[in-house]
């Protein structure tokens, strides 16, 4: 099965440079300080942020001049085709956790919260490719919902190469397993900095640049969508703002 047909259509009917449909909602839970729900195609992810709060557990982990960021990535047992025996703790989840922490640490202004801790919890409800990207995007939204100062959004996107020539953006699970390489990039869209870059399978070095550029363009497009969603959310809860005028 070709990843991209002669007419330029992919397996799910998208064109090479099209993203999947993204739907998101902020503030879905009352308990955590910030929460968000994000759907990217069929991949569904929930994010919850607690903090900043006093470091629980060992005091020695407190950093004197910056905040401790604690991430947890967990996949629900029903999220994949075959039942997943271990929702967290296996190698792939630990790696995802590390990469998530790296992406989130790149944008949080850590020096504002010395000796505190911020917890970010991610739960994948349905995994259909691009799990890491959906998690990073959901985490950004949850952090904004919690009112934690960020340098800017951190957005992630995947890209791949079909048939050795055509670059694709935002690949689904089927396209991942069918053998093409996949490159995941987490970037800060406004300043163009790259926070996390990770690649597997193989393709020739000469293609690296164009695939990365396509992934970065995908990040910028996702940023526009997320920004619009945040502004809508702020407007909906707009009745809150009279307080400023009465003060």
């Amino acid at each position: 099965m070709d990843l991209i047909s002669d007419q330029g259509l992919r397996v799910d009917g998208r064109r090479a440079g099209e993203l999947r449909r993204i739907r998101c909602k902020l503030g879905v839970y009352d308990q955590p300080d910030g929460s968000a729900y994000l759907e990217q195609g069929h991949t569904k992810v929930l994010a919850a942020v607690y903090g900043p709060h006093q470091i629980r557990g060992s005091r020695t982990k407190a950093l004197q001049d910056s905040v401790v960021i604690n991430c947890q990535y967990s996949m629900a047992t029903f999220s994949t085709g075959e039942r997943k025996k271990r929702p967290r703790g296996d190698r792939r989840s630990t790696e995802m956790t590390m990469l998530l922490k790296q992406a989130v640490s790149a944008v949080i202004k850590a020096e504002l919260y010395p000796r505190s801790q911020i917890d970010v919890f991610l739960e994948v409800l349905q995994a259909d490719g691009g799990n890491y990207c959906a998690c990073v995007n959901a985490a950004t939204l949850a952090l904004i919902d919690a009112g934690i100062p960020l340098r800017e959004y951190v957005v992630a996107c995947t890209a791949s190469l079909a048939n050795g020539k055509v670059p694709l953006v935002d690949i689904s699970h089927l396209e991942e397993t069918m053998g093409g390489p996949n490159l995941t990039v987490a970037a800060l869209p406004l300043s163009g900095q790259i926070a996390v870059m990770e690649m597997s399978q193989r393709f020739h070095i000469d293609h690296l640049e164009e695939v990365t550029q396509l992934a970065l363009q995908g990040c910028r497009d996702i940023y526009k969508i997320l920004d619009k969603a945040v502004k809508e959310h702020l407007l909906e809860t707009g009745d809150f703002f009279p307080q400023l005028e009465s003060n």
């Binding site: 390489p181 490159l183 996390v196 870059m197 990770e198 690649m199 193989r202 020739h204 070095i205 000469d206």
Partner: peptide
């Protein structure tokens, strides 16, 4: 000259 993995 094929890339097999990348980690930043």
């Amino acid at each position: 000259r094929e890339l097999c993995g990348l980690y930043l």
